[in-house]
C-alpha cells in the first residue's frame, strides 16, 4: 500500500464493552487494524472472542447493553465513533455493508425478497423501482442464483440456508460498498458453493477496490482469501500480520494452536493437536494474559497483560514468550 493512499478503514484501540448484570464484558478491548482499498483482512478466533462485536461496532450497530467506550473507527478519515445516527444510516448499506453470521435469521420472514432488496437500494438513491429491481436481479445473478426473476418474488422460507446467505451477500453487494464486513458468510454453504462465492467476492474486491473484513473460524479460507490476518482471543488481537508470514511462522502460542488443529494432508495419521481447556468467560478473565491458563509457554511474566510488540514485516504479537523470537523492533505502550 503506497503511503499516499490512506486505508479505507482504520480501527484504533477500539473498546466495546457490554454492561451486563453480571459485570462488564469487554467483548472488544483495544483492537487496532486497518484495511486498504481492495484488500482483504481475515479476522479469526474462537467463538466468543469478539469478532462479531468488532463488526457491529464498525457499522454502529452495537445493541444495549453494549457501548463503544473508547478508540476510533476511521472510515476514509471520518471518525465513525462520534458520527451522528443519521450519518451512520447514510453510510450503512452504501459505503459499509455487512453480511451476518446466521443466514436463517437475516431475512425478514414476512417480506418478499424483492421488497427486501429494492428497499435497500431506494433507501439511498432516488431511482425508479424498476431500475432498483433490475439491479437486484443482476446482483442475484452475480452470486449464482438461477432464475433471479422468479426468486425475487419468493419469500425467505422458500430458500435453503445456503440460498438465503447468497441473497444476504447480494444485498450487501447491491450498492457497491467500499467496505464489506462479512461475518462467517460461507460457513452455512457447502464446499463447492463456498469456493464459488469466495471467488466472486475476491474478484469483486480487486475489481472495485472494495475493502473486505472476512470473519471466520476457518483458517483455510483465510489462507486462500486474505492479505492480512488478525487473530483474536478474548476481545484482544493477539497476533497480526500478513497471511503468509503468520501462517508459515506463527509466533503466538494461540495462533500456533489454531494452525495445528487444522487437518492437513501432510500430517495424515498424526492425531490433531488441540488447544487444551476452554475459551474463558469475559466476565472472569485471568489476571494476566487471558490465554495464560491454556498456554504451554506459560511463565511468571504472563501474570501481567502483555503489550503489543512489533516484529519485522509489520507483524505484531501480544505475548511475553513468543514461539519464534525475531528481533523486537519496538514495544508499544
Amino acid at each position: 500500500m503506497p503511503l499516499s493512499e490512506s486505508p479505507t478503514i482504520e480501527v484504533k484501540d477500539l473498546k466495546t464493552y457490554f454492561f451486563t448484570k453480571g459485570g462488564i464484558a469487554k467483548a472488544v478491548d483495544g483492537v487496532s487494524f486497518s484495511v486498504g482499498r481492495g484488500k482483504v483482512l481475515g479476522l479469526v478466533g474462537e467463538s466468543g472472542s469478539g469478532k462479531t462485536v468488532t463488526g457491529f461496532s464498525i457499522l454502529g450497530l452495537v445493541d444495549e447493553p453494549g457501548r463503544i467506550v473508547g478508540g476510533e473507527i476511521l472510515y476514509r478519515g471520518e471518525n465513525l465513533v462520534s458520527a451522528s445516527p443519521d450519518r451512520m444510516r447514510e453510510l450503512r448499506g452504501v459505503n459499509i455493508s455487512m453480511i451476518f453470521q446466521d443466514p436463517m435469521m437475516t431475512l425478514n420472514p414476512v417480506l418478499r425478497i424483492d421488497t427486501q432488496m429494492i428497499e435497500a437500494v431506494l433507501a439511498h438513491e432516488s431511482i425508479s423501482k424498476d431500475d432498483a429491481r433490475q439491479r437486484a436481479r443482476d446482483v442475484l445473478g452475480q452470486v449464482g442464483i438461477a432464475s433471479p426473476d422468479e426468486r425475487l418474488r419468493s419469500y425467505p422460507h422458500q430458500f435453503s440456508g445456503g440460498m438465503r446467505q447468497r441473497v444476504a451477500i447480494a444485498i450487501a453487494l447491491l450498492n457497491k460498498p467500499d467496505l464489506i464486513v462479512a461475518d462467517e458468510p460461507t460457513t452455512a454453504l457447502d464446499v463447492t458453493i463456498q469456493g464459488q462465492i469466495l471467488y466472486e467476492v475476491q474478484k469483486l474486491c480487486s475489481q472495485t477496490g472494495t475493502a473486505l473484513i472476512w470473519i471466520t473460524h476457518d483458517l483455510s479460507v483465510v489462507a486462500g482469501l486474505a492479505d492480512d490476518i488478525c487473530v483474536m482471543y478474548a476481545g484482544r488481537i493477539v497476533e497480526q500480520g500478513s497471511v503468509n508470514s503468520v501462517l508459515d511462522k506463527p509466533m503466538h502460542p494461540y495462533t500456533n494452536g489454531l494452525i495445528s488443529s487444522v487437518p492437513s494432508r501432510n500430517k495424515r495419521g498424526v492425531p490433531l493437536a488441540q488447544i487444551p481447556g476452554m475459551a474463558p468467560s469475559l466476565l472472569k478473565l485471568p489476571k494476566g494474559c487471558s490465554f495464560g491458563p491454556r498456554c504451554a509457554q506459560f511463565s511468571d511474566a504472563c501474570d501481567s497483560i502483555p503489550d503489543i510488540s512489533n516484529y519485522e514485516n509489520g507483524r505484531q504479537i501480544r505475548c511475553h514468550n513468543p514461539l519464534d523470537k525475531g528481533t523486537i523492533l519496538r514495544v508499544m505502550d
Binding site: L59, R89, F100, T106, N108, L111, E119, H124
Partner: peptide, 23 residues
C-alpha cells in the same frame, strides 16, 4: 437479526418500524 440486518442496509427507522416490525 432481521431487524438489525434491515438497519445494516441503512433503512430509515420509520420504514423499519412500519414495515419490518409491523408486518
Amino acid at each position: 437479526d432481521y431487524i438489525k440486518f434491515a438497519r445494516a442496509k441503512g433503512l430509515k427507522e420509520t420504514r423499519i418500524i412500519l414495515i419490518h416490525v409491523m408486518k
